[in-house]
Amino acid sequence: MQANKFRIIGLVLVAGLLAFTWLRIGLSKSTEIRQPIRFNHKKHVQGGLECSGCHQTVKDQATAGRPETSLCMTCHEASVTKNPEENLIREYAQRHEEIPWQRVIKLPDHVFFSHRRHVSTEKLDCTSCHEAIGQSSEPPSRPIKFSMDSCLACHQKMKASVDCVACHK
């Protein structure tokens, strides 16, 4: 009985320090992200594109996937808008280069997340997690963070697994 109490005290101590460390790193290391092209999600969504139109592996793989230059070129082969940013796409295509999209959401290495599971089998809407990205006209300049709390809250609500190894790899 008593041993258990000590264990809990120990646990609290650890948790506290852990939280502190986490916070410290989180605050000091968040860096600005600049995308190679100032991509306008809103325009694309308004134009009638589905999220999976560009994030092509979202339904059947773990990662949603980023559009390859060739995919962008299917629409942007010729000018669609007057936006000078659009020319950048064609420049990449001409150089046979992939557009170096920068990652804005980076899960820690010990987390396993699968889009397929959430989108395909559980039929979650993209906005359940990615809220307003479809409404943004500028790419986010800071990394987007997800907290385990938000994952857990939803998992508990939806009666999904809260087993550690189901998400921690």
Partner: peptide, 24 residues
């Protein structure tokens, strides 16, 4: 150990090098 370990697991690198489109 934990504090340095945490630093290890969350390195800030060029995101592209860590990028995995996941296409398998």
């Amino acid at each position: 150990l934990t504090s340095c370990a945490t630093r290890q697991t969350l390195p800030v690198k060029d995101p592209l090098s860590e990028w995995r489109a996941g296409a398998e």
